[in-house]
C-alpha cells in the first residue's frame, strides 16, 4: 500500500527530557491510523510536529513524498481537529468552516457551496448561523471536523477529539467518524489514550510508551498478540501467572479438575462481581497471585472461599516477549 506519511527517527526533547525518542512509522494512504498511549507518552508532541507547531530535534517528516520539516503550519497540507476544538468564538459555525477556504484565497462564490456541502455532510445545516457558544459539545466537534476537512487536506490530524464528549455521545460519534473517514478516503492520524476508541476505529494502531513505539499492528494483532507486557496491559486486563499473560475472558475456573491440554493452577475465590453481561470472579492462587476470570451467567456460581482450579488453553497465552 502507498505510504501517505512517513516519520523517520523523530526526536524531540523539552529541557533535557526526551519526549519523543526515535519514532519511525509509515501511515498508508486512506488509513485510519491511531497513536495510542498514556498521557505524556509523546503522542501529542508528534502530532504537533506534523502540524508544524514545533520542530523535531532530529528526524524527518515526509508526507506524500514531500518533506515537511521547517515548513510553517500554514504551508503544510494537513489540518488538525484540536482537543478543545479551538472554534473561533467570534465566528458562526459556517464562518468557522469557511475560514480555511478564505485563507487559501478561494473566490466567495466557490466557498459558499463547499461550506454548505460540508455542513450537510456533518448534519449541521440547521446550525450554520450559530455561534460556537450556542452549539452543543457534539455539534462543536462536528464543526471542528468540517472546518478541518473542507480544505481537503492530504491528511487529517485528530488530537483526542472525542475526549470532551460525554460517554454516551462518544460511542455514537465514534461510528460517525469511522463512516466519514471511509466515505472521504482521507488519511486520518488519530491520537488517543482510550484503547477501546483506538481498537474500534483504527485500521492500524501504533502503541506508544515513554516516547517510543512498543508495537504497530492491526487492532486484532495488538490485542491478541501484544509484543510487550506494556501493550498487553494497556489494551486490556491481563492475569500474569508465572510470567505468562492470559486475558480474563480466556481464563476459566472450575471445581472439577480440567481436562487434558489445559494449563492449570489452584486458587481460592476472593470476590465475585456481577457486571450485567458476566461475572468477574477474583481468585488468589496458592502462590499469592490475584487472577480474575470472566464467568458467564450459565456457569456454576462461585462463593467466596471456594477452592477452585484456574485454567486456560495454551493458545490463549499472550505471546509477550521480555
Amino acid at each position: 500500500m502507498e505510504t501517505a506519511l512517513a516519520l523517520r527517527a523523530l526526536e524531540k526533547s523539552f529541557s533535557s527530557h526526551r519526549v519523543v525518542d526515535g519514532i519511525s512509522l509509515d501511515v498508508p494512504k486512506g488509513c485510519f491510523y491511531s497513536l495510542l498511549g498514556p498521557s505524556g507518552c509523546g503522542k501529542t508532541t508528534i502530532l504537533r510536529m506534523i502540524g508544524g507547531f514545533g520542530e523535531p530535534d532530529a528526524g524527518e517528516i515526509v508526507l506524500n513524498g514531500k518533506r515537511l520539516n521547517g515548513l510553517r503550519p500554514y504551508e503544510r497540507p494537513v489540518t488538525t481537529v484540536f482537543q478543545s476544538y479551538a472554534l473561533f468564538p467570534h465566528l458562526t459555525a459556517a464562518q468557522n468552516i469557511a475560514f480555511g477556504l478564505e485563507r487559501r484565497g478561494e473566490a466567495p462564490a466557490a466557498i459558499a457551496p463547499k461550506v454548505n456541502r460540508m455542513l450537510e455532510l456533518v448534519g449541521l445545516q440547521e446550525k450554520a448561523g450559530r455561534m460556537p457558544a450556542n452549539l452543543s459539545g457534539g455539534e462543536k466537534q462536528r464543526t471542528a471536523l468540517a472546518r478541518a476537512l473542507v480544505v481537503e487536506p492530504e491528511m487529517l490530524l485528530l488530537d483526542e477529539p472525542l475526549s470532551a464528549l460525554d460517554p454516551a455521545l462518544r460511542k455514537r460519534v465514534r461510528i460517525e467518524l469511522k463512516q466519514l473517514q471511509k466515505q472521504l478516503g482521507i488519511t486520518f492520524l488519530f491520537i488517543t489514550h482510550d484503547q477501546e476508541e483506538a481498537l474500534s476505529l483504527s485500521d492500524q494502531i501504533a502503541v506508544m510508551n515513554k516516547g517510543k513505539i512498543e508495537q504497530i499492528g492491526t487492532p486484532q494483532e495488538i490485542y491478541l498478540t501484544p509484543a510487550t507486557r506494556f501493550v498487553a496491559g494497556f489494551l486490556g486486563a491481563v492475569n500474569w501467572i508465572d510470567g505468562i499473560g492470559v486475558r480474563p475472558e480466556a481464563t476459566r475456573i472450575s471445581r472439577a479438575t480440567p481436562g487434558n491440554g489445559a494449563r492449570t493452577v489452584d486458587a481460592q475465590v476472593e470476590t465475585s462481581v456481577f457486571l450485567g453481561d458476566c461475572f468477574h470472579v477474583q481468585t488468589r492462587t496458592s502462590a499469592g497471585v490475584t487472577v480474575t476470570a470472566q464467568v458467564s451467567h450459565k456457569d456454576e456460581p462461585f462463593a467466596n472461599g471456594d477452592r477452585v482450579h484456574v485454567w486456560w488453553h495454551a493458545a490463549d497465552e499472550l505471546p509477550v516477549r521480555e
Binding site: 502540524g51 508544524g52 507547531f53 510553517r72 503550519p73 500554514y74 494537513v78 489540518t79 488538525t80 484540536f82 482537543q83 478543545s84 479551538a86 472554534l87 473561533f88 468564538p89 467570534h90 475560514f99 480555511g100 485563507r103 487559501r104 472546518r147 478541518a148 480544505v151
Partner: peptide
C-alpha cells in the same frame, strides 16, 4: 484566551499576521 485558537488559524492556512488580525484581535 485559548492559545489553540491561533494554532487553529495557522493550521487552516492563516499567516501569523492573519491569525492575530482575524482571530486574536476580534477576541
Amino acid at each position: 484566551a485559548e492559545p489553540a485558537l491561533e494554532d487553529a488559524a495557522l493550521d487552516l492556512g492563516a499567516s501569523e499576521w492573519e491569525a492575530f488580525r482575524l482571530v486574536t484581535l476580534p477576541i
